[in-house]
Simulated scan of single mutants.
Amino acid sequence: MPKSKSDLIRALSRSYPNIYKKDLEKFLDIFLNEIKTALKNDERVELRGWGIFSSKKQKSRKSRNPRTGEEIITMEKKSIHFKMSKELFNKLNEK
């Protein structure tokens, strides 16, 4: 089951009942915006025990429209790369 932003805020408010929900929402917004800004500026984001986010550039290339067979040029773009930590890997693969 996917987690939405509102699900995360609800879980955080259950874990921290003494903090207002609106403050948790603001904190989550700031946290996610800082990650977005860092990735946009080609910086690496490392969250210990969780993993590393980095942005990679995909070069422009020739591609083909599968429906029409027409050749088109795909422009250069950035994508996000995530590498999980060993700790997270071991937790996911526990037996």
Rank of each mutant, 00 (worst) to 15 (best):
I52E: 03
E94Y: 10
L24S: 00
F53V: 05
P17E: 04
W50T: 09
E71N: 14
A11K: 12
Y16I: 06
K78L: 03
N33S: 09
L24D: 00
E25W: 06
K57N: 07
L92T: 05
G49D: 03
R61W: 07
E43R: 14
L28E: 02
R67K: 12
R64L: 09
S55P: 03
M1D: 07
D42T: 00
T74I: 13
S6K: 15
L39N: 04
F31D: 01
K26Y: 05
G49T: 05
I73N: 14
K21F: 06
L32V: 10
I80F: 15
I72Y: 15
Y20M: 08
H81A: 11
M1C: 11
I9Y: 03
T37P: 00
H81K: 14
W50D: 04
R64V: 09
F31Q: 04
D23K: 15
K59Y: 03
R48I: 07
S4C: 13
K57L: 03
I80Q: 10
I80D: 09
T37A: 14
K22C: 00
K77P: 01
S15L: 14
K56T: 01
N18E: 07
T37V: 12
F31H: 06
D42A: 01
R61M: 07
L28C: 02
N41Y: 08
K26M: 06
F82K: 13
A38K: 02
I35Q: 01
Q58F: 05
L47G: 05
K5I: 06
R61C: 05
I35V: 12
E71A: 14
F89W: 13
D29A: 06
D42N: 07
G69W: 14
S79A: 12
A11C: 04
G51T: 09
L39A: 06
K22M: 02
K62W: 13
L88G: 01
E70S: 15
K5M: 11
E34Q: 14
G49W: 08
K95E: 04
L28N: 03
M84C: 12
K36Q: 07
K86T: 00
E25R: 15
K62V: 12
F82M: 12
K95N: 09
K86R: 14
S79E: 08
R67E: 00
F53N: 01
N93C: 10
I9R: 04
